[in-house]
Amino acid sequence: MPISEEMINRKGARKGTDIPHDVLNLLNQGEIESVNLTEWLAVNHMTLIQHVLPSIGLDHRLGEVSSEIAKQKAESGMKAIRLIGQLLDDVLREETEEKQAKVLQAFAHHVSDSVRCWAAYMNKQSLSTLKEKLAYIQPFAADHHFGVREIAWMSVRESLSLQLDQSIEHLTEWAKSEDENIRRFSVESIRPRGVWTKHIELLKQEPERALPILNLLKSDPSSYVQDSVGNWLNDASKTQPNWVTNLCDQWSKDSDTKATSRIVKKAKRTIVKGNL
Score class of each variant (00 low, 15 high):
residue 141 A to E: 09
residue 183 R to A: 12
residue 43 V to W: 01
residue 70 A to N: 10
residue 164 L to V: 12
residue 111 V to C: 15
residue 114 S to F: 08
residue 229 V to Q: 03
residue 40 W to N: 05
residue 255 S to M: 11
residue 130 L to Y: 08
residue 48 L to G: 00
residue 7 M to F: 15
residue 88 L to F: 10
residue 106 A to G: 13
residue 188 E to D: 05
residue 266 K to Q: 12
residue 223 S to W: 12
residue 16 G to I: 13
residue 255 S to R: 07
residue 180 E to R: 07
residue 238 K to C: 09
residue 219 S to F: 04
residue 180 E to I: 09
residue 37 L to Y: 07
residue 30 G to N: 05
residue 172 T to D: 09
residue 132 E to S: 15
residue 258 K to Q: 15
residue 152 A to L: 05
residue 199 H to Y: 08
residue 199 H to W: 07
residue 275 N to A: 15
residue 197 T to V: 15
residue 39 E to V: 03
residue 83 L to P: 03
residue 95 E to I: 08
residue 44 N to E: 04
residue 232 W to H: 07
residue 23 V to T: 13
residue 141 A to D: 09
residue 178 E to L: 02
residue 112 S to H: 03
residue 143 D to Y: 05
residue 273 K to P: 14
residue 274 G to N: 15
residue 239 T to C: 09
residue 247 L to R: 08
residue 185 F to I: 05
residue 197 T to A: 14
residue 132 E to G: 03
residue 156 V to S: 00
residue 29 Q to N: 10
residue 42 A to P: 10
residue 41 L to F: 14
residue 43 V to L: 03
residue 155 S to R: 03
residue 37 L to H: 04
residue 185 F to D: 03
residue 81 I to T: 13
residue 10 R to T: 10
residue 58 L to T: 01
residue 118 W to E: 00
residue 82 R to C: 01
residue 129 T to K: 11
residue 204 K to W: 02
residue 71 K to V: 01
residue 19 I to Y: 08
residue 276 L to N: 14
residue 198 K to Y: 14
residue 262 R to F: 12
residue 1 M to Q: 01
residue 247 L to P: 06
residue 38 T to K: 07
residue 95 E to S: 15
residue 22 D to I: 09
residue 169 E to P: 02
residue 233 L to V: 09
residue 6 E to F: 11
residue 275 N to R: 15
residue 8 I to Q: 06
residue 176 K to T: 07
residue 87 L to W: 01
residue 201 E to T: 14
residue 54 P to E: 02
residue 210 A to D: 01
residue 63 G to Y: 08
residue 207 P to L: 10
residue 144 H to G: 09
residue 229 V to F: 06
residue 56 I to S: 00
residue 28 N to A: 09
residue 202 L to I: 13
residue 217 L to F: 00
residue 170 H to C: 11
residue 212 P to S: 02
residue 81 I to M: 09
residue 230 G to I: 04
residue 261 S to D: 13
residue 154 M to D: 07
residue 163 Q to C: 00
residue 113 D to P: 10
residue 64 E to M: 05
residue 224 Y to L: 03
residue 200 I to Q: 05
residue 81 I to E: 02
residue 81 I to K: 03
residue 79 K to M: 07
residue 90 D to Y: 11
residue 125 Q to C: 06
residue 191 R to A: 02
residue 57 G to P: 11
residue 15 K to A: 13
residue 64 E to W: 00
residue 200 I to F: 06
residue 47 T to P: 00
residue 3 I to E: 00
residue 38 T to C: 12
